[in-house]
Design a protein around this nucleic acid. Sequence first.
DNA 1: ACTTAGCAGATTGTCGACAATTATAATTTA
DNA 2: TAAATTATAATTGTCGACAATCTGCTAAGT
Lengths: 226, 226
Amino acid sequence: MIQSPVWRSPITASDRVLAEIQQAIVAGEIPAGSKISEPELARRFAVSRAPLREALARLERCHLIERTPNAGARVVTLSTAGLRSLYEIREELEGLACRLAAEHMADDEIADMRRLLDQHLQEQRVREGESYYQEAGDLDFHYRIIFGSKNQYLINILCDELYYLMRMYRVQLGMNGPRVSRAFDEHKAIIQAIANRDGELADLLMRRHIAASRRHIEIQLQQMGK
Amino acid sequence: MIQSPVWRSPITASDRVLAEIQQAIVAGEIPAGSKISEPELARRFAVSRAPLREALARLERCHLIERTPNAGARVVTLSTAGLRSLYEIREELEGLACRLAAEHMADDEIADMRRLLDQHLQEQRVREGESYYQEAGDLDFHYRIIFGSKNQYLINILCDELYYLMRMYRVQLGMNGPRVSRAFDEHKAIIQAIANRDGELADLLMRRHIAASRRHIEIQLQQMGK
DNA sequence: ACTTAGCAGATTGTCGACAATTATAATTTA
DNA sequence: TAAATTATAATTGTCGACAATCTGCTAAGT
């Protein structure tokens, strides 16, 4: 199993406050663009400034805050331009992940994924169009493929460094909505291609899948008048 | 100009030791795979453990060290598998950078790059086959294209997080050698495609360019008997 | 002789305080 | 009145020391 440098299980105080601040930022509890005060956060989470600074360093790694020397840190500001930048990279790297997964995933891993997908299908029939599926199921799907690539750096970039920022966009700009059944079909086609060891096709399908998701988000943003 | 979270100009003590340790690791002065002792490094670079730990956190971000909680940090070990993982990502992302650069680079930026390339050509005729060109010229070329993409996350990933590891492989596994003139021609073709605003072609050419570089390295490694 | 339990040593994580730098506001001057 | 300047205040960067945890060795027991 690969050791994740940003999330190792929350045993130390630094890990705990990291998880709490991450959640607070993603949820918008600490507003986007606001300045971060180290003493204030230290009091709020009942730790010293040493573990807090370590947590801030890792938050910077996740692109959730931006620091300038001797001038403090600010929570990132969300923008449509930033979202597009993020998805440009995501499209490319998850396509690569598909190609590598088709090459490196073990047969039983693929079988596991199909079982998982069938399980999601049953749940989906019950809670039709609920956004919870989009959260858990979609992410689980993408996670498994990324880990299936067996490429350590790829896993780090997608699951550690860019993941929380993507979630922040999802939560704060309100990207729920249906598109579930179509996404589900796309997921199934991607798995099928990987099972056939057709990396090129899986790559293509994943790029389309993410591009479709991006268009969906852009439309939703336009309707919000952003 | 984009603020780089890992290299902001070395004004603080943390930045200074970061730069020194980076150089020491890349050069192999601190051996690959060796365990890192915080008190020892603190004495060696004449700083307290606080800025040293901040530097270590950023070294981890560059994939130059690996930390396990309550058990210390180790310098990464180099391997052909790791090198391949690195180049898989590099190929993908620098291809994307080309496509975006063809879209976003200003005309004078492109003109600047052509001047730079002509300048390299003149230097190259003088010191034929010298490995210094490969270092400075090649990197400068790739840097400019990456920055030309105007994608902040792409710039961070390629120029901050993966750059030093690539240099480490270059230095320690001895990737010098000629291949200069061919690389130069490839560079020129890529610029031409960007100038023509043909992102798709620039993408393809850059992927080939990097793939060729990878094959060259793999052959060299095989000859070394690694 | 081998395994296991306990102990010693060292290392990492955390804390509170001090020093250096920067942002802010009041004050002075043109 | 507005701009420049100084002084104050708050924040960040750094330091040395203490506490919690892990590693390796010693010693006892089976």
